[in-house]
Design a protein around this nucleic acid. Structure first.
Lengths: 193, 193
DNA sequence: GCATGTAGCGGACTGTGGTCCGCTTAATCG
DNA sequence: CGATTAAGCGGACCACAGTCCGCTACATGC
């Protein structure tokens, strides 16, 4: 996949791929919740130390698994076709952005929740959050908000699309995906224009 | 404090108070993060089993410690004086509500973050969340929103006031308490009236 | 008081995330 | 090639949350 630094040792690369492949398989068989790091190390045929050396901690492993799809998602709203990508009004783009995130959560909620279990701040301090925040804030800036309020509102809008909240609304509260998309659209309409 | 059920055994009550007192003390000396359940059991002079029998898990212990202050907070916005309590317009009450929550987080952030570490949904499925949600949703209803959108917006507004987000904005992003209060007011102004 | 049933106790135990450190082995250089 | 070196390996180990179950002692009826 990624060429990586030229100095990655052959066995290291082999193990990294083995771990990712084994993780993918275990996630498919059991859920993310049931997969333990010991099981994964065993299934990948590596020691536990190797696992943690490569991925740091459990949450980061899930981030690594999401990485490819996350990258594609970012590509779509930064350089993809309108209304999600450049070309539409800020309002159209924000509405499309929300729909896209809701779809993404619909497909990846298992991984997303599992990746969320870092104690301090969760996803807030992850670089990925910064990219989304910058995007939303820029759209709000285009829509006429002053920079500081745009940043603030970006945090608010992203909080409204946070995986744990969406999953709660979908599952516990019984909201349909369509209802959430509609409510999001009304929210954006209130804030932009 | 609470009279409790008449059938609470004397030793049980004694232990409950000892645990809460010891927890309060340890939290003051070390932080919430550094306090382990073993230490607490030891400091309170009880077995670990007793600790978990009474409080269920670590997060619930912190909820119990917050309970009194949380109850007082709810009392203030449900039955207290305006503009927080009944008497003002929905918009005034929502602005005051946000300020109150921001103050509350400012004082209790240690406990609030520690109480947040439940895997599934965090505070979303706690009864306390339901009370806040009902309050905010009712105010939005008064302001003219239809019930479903009011519920949705209540979730969004509460997400904007979630302790991890506020702590992140205050600490990492360097926003002042006054800036956050101001941004909140602008947000409410956009959504109500 | 004393017997009796049971709520509550406590600490040994378990499962899991994460660390440590002596050993292995891939890459590099002569 | 063989020697050198350090990146990488792996599994024993640790800390901590949460469980289990035989024992204790509180409340209740006599």
């Amino acid at each position: 996949m990624s060429p990586g630094l030229r100095t990655e040792r052959a066995d290291a690369a082999r193990n990294r791929l083995a771990i990712l492949a084994a993780a993918e398989r275990l996630l498919h068989e059991r859920g993310a919740e049931e997969m333990t790091m010991d099981q994964l190390a065993c299934a990948a045929g590596v020691g536990k130390g190797t696992l943690f050396r490569r991925f740091g901690d459990r949450a980061s492993l899930f981030h690594a698994l999401l990485d490819e799809r996350e990258r594609a998602l970012q590509e779509r709203f930064i350089r993809g076709p309108a209304p999600l990508g450049p070309g539409g009004s800020p309002r159209e783009r924000l509405v499309a952005y929300g729909r896209e995130i809701l779809d993404f959560i619909e497909e990846q909620h298992g991984l997303l929740l599992a990746a969320e279990t870092g104690l301090l701040g969760g996803r807030l301090r992850h670089p990925v959050y910064g990219a989304h925040r910058a995007h939303v804030s820029a759209l709000l800036g285009e829509a006429g908000y002053e920079a500081e309020q745009a940043d603030y509102l970006a945090d608010v809008l992203l909080a409204a699309l946070a995986p744990p909240l969406i999953v709660h609304q979908r599952g516990v509260l019984g909201r349909s995906a369509a209802q959430l998309a509609h409510s999001w659209e009304q929210l954006v309409a209130r804030l932009v224009d």
